[in-house]
Design a protein around this nucleic acid. Structure first.
Length: 433
RNA sequence: GCGCCGGUGGUAGAGCGGUCAAUUACAACAGACUGUAAAUCUGUCGCCCUAUGGGCUCCGUAGGUUCAAAUCCUACCCGGCGCA
């Protein structure tokens, strides 16, 4: 993997560049669609490439390990081949699942506690089969202190998981995660980290940073070992920075991970910024981290974001993003819309097509958008598809939402290259606030 | 014409004397969703108000029994089935 910076915005951390992988180039900054289970939900890969305009996709180690199994994907010839995606691929390490499966008592949100309101019981109907990890190993940390039905339990050596598919128990360690990711065969893989809950106190965040550091070293070591053994081109490994909302922890973690080097000189090929993010954290935590991380390596902001987050992320030195929001929102009838393009006076950046007002609105989804969905289908038709529960609705909206985010970032990239970043950014921020 | 069964909120369909403005599902109307346990989840869903409380109307229609009726009785109207 080779990262090149092509242009930098003056007085800003923003930069435009490219990541060269064995499967093609990612022009950064870039929004990377999420395809957790080796599919960008409801969208065929040729559409993701040609209609959405995405350069890469990101899948998940935990999910693919459970189903169909990493050995199947290896047999298929790797993730890209398996899912018919010829471009660059990423896999997340599964570390995030330790966090999101850590408790079924209170729903986890990466953001404020206020968002974590609905109970998991209600959400998943209290599925008995996947409810609780049989026993928490002695000396382990239930990821969330209030958790009474943990499905993932972290200890210093790794994480014990319960399968979301059949309830069976599994264990990930940093080494195991790297092995599985090598089998899956993405171009860029992530270190196994611990993502603490937003509610975790300073001490726990500190502990998570420390664990993440120790695990990062083991990931790096395992990666080097596997590279030596394999004749295939080995994936690039990104280390992950944690630290919650604490400046000292964030900087500490960024220094640790950024400077980490094995005795033979092996270091991370790039970095992921993970953990708890509130809206304001993009301008603080992300900035702190990117000021510390080596400039010559790409930075990926894990699990972010919405339009405003992308704008702020790019401004604060992020090169790539991934987020489930565009496809998840799309499946429930919500569409991003460029605020100034809304016909009425209300400036909205999101509309819900299930709202009664769209039943007979024959205009395009977003008049300012030139995606296939906006060019060819009316709001009324999309509204009908969702009301009729026709699955084409999810596909069409996913294409639009994905296109929307991909192109916001593309526009920012162009602006960096053309030297107009500051004004373009300011205008976009104004539009979206 | 006789007999039996049934008529419940937008729909289907529970309830069969008080705990019923009425279970539940669907529809409708809103909301949420940020490294995907998510084609999911949550809330509202008779009317009105000085609204974490109060008032009014309500289970085909009209009467009646009862302290109390969607629930029991009578008549009528409507629907289904059976017999003529």
């Amino acid at each position: 993997m080779k990262f090149t910076i092509q242009a930098k915005a003056p007085n800003s951390l923003a930069r435009a560049g490219s990541i060269e992988t064995p499967h093609g180039i990612i022009e950064t900054p870039a929004f990377i669609p999420v395809g957790t289970k080796a599919t960008v939900k409801s969208v065929a890969t040729d559409v993701v490439r040609d209609k959405v305009g995405a350069d890469a996709v990101l899948a998940n180690t935990y999910h693919l390990y459970l189903q169909p199994g990493d050995e199947i994907i290896e047999k298929a010839g790797g993730l890209g081949k398996f899912m018919n995606w010829s471009g660059p691929t990423f896999t997340d390490s599964g570390g995030f699942q330790a966090f999101s499966l850590g408790s079924v008592k209170s729903r986890k949100s990466k953001f404020t506690e206020a968002n974590a309101k609905e109970g998991f019981e209600g959400h998943f109907g209290g599925r008995e089969d996947v409810r609780e990890l049989a026993a928490e190993p002695a000396g382990s940390d239930s990821v969330s202190r209030e958790s009474s039905f943990a499905m993932a339990v972290v200890d210093d050596d790794g994480v014990t998981f319960k399968s979301i598919i059949d309830g069976s128990e599994h264990r990930f360690t940093p080494e195991r995660s790297i092995q599985i990711q090598h089998n899956i065969g993405a171009d860029i893989i992530f270190a196994f980290d611990e993502c603490a809950t937003p509610g975790a106190d300073y001490d726990y965040q500190k502990k998570a940073v420390e664990r993440t550091r120790l695990w990062a070293e083991r990931c790096l070591e395992e990666s080097r070992k596997l590279k030596g053994e394999s004749q295939k081109s080995a994936p690039a490994l990104f280390g992950i920075v944690q630290g919650g909302r604490h400046e000292d922890l964030r900087k500490l973690s960024a220094r640790d991970i950024g400077a980490m080097k094995l005795s033979d000189g092996t270091s991370f090929d790039g970095f992921g910024i993970g953990g708890s993010f509130d809206k304001d954290d993009i301008g603080t935590a992300v900035k702190w981290v990117n000021e510390v991380l080596p400039e010559d390596k790409p930075r990926h902001l894990l699990g972010i974001g919405e339009p405003i987050d992308l704008i702020l992320g790019v401004a604060n030195g992020v090169d790539t993003f991934d987020c489930v929001a565009p496809t998840r929102l799309a499946r429930t009838g919500a569409a991003y819309v460029y605020p100034s393009s809304k016909v009425d006076l209300e400036k909205k950046s999101r509309i819900n097509l299930l709202n009664a007002e769209f039943k007979d609105d024959f205009g395009p989804l977003d008049p300012s958008c030139d995606c296939d969905t906006c060019k060819n289908y009316s709001r009324a038709y999309l509204a009908h598809l969702f009301r009729a529960k026709e699955m084409l609705g999810a596909t069409l909206l996913s294409v639009h939402n994905l296109h929307f985010l991909v192109h916001i970032v593309k526009r920012l990239r162009t602006a960096i290259v053309e030297g107009t970043f500051e004004e373009v950014k300011e205008k976009m921020l104004k539009d979206f606030s």
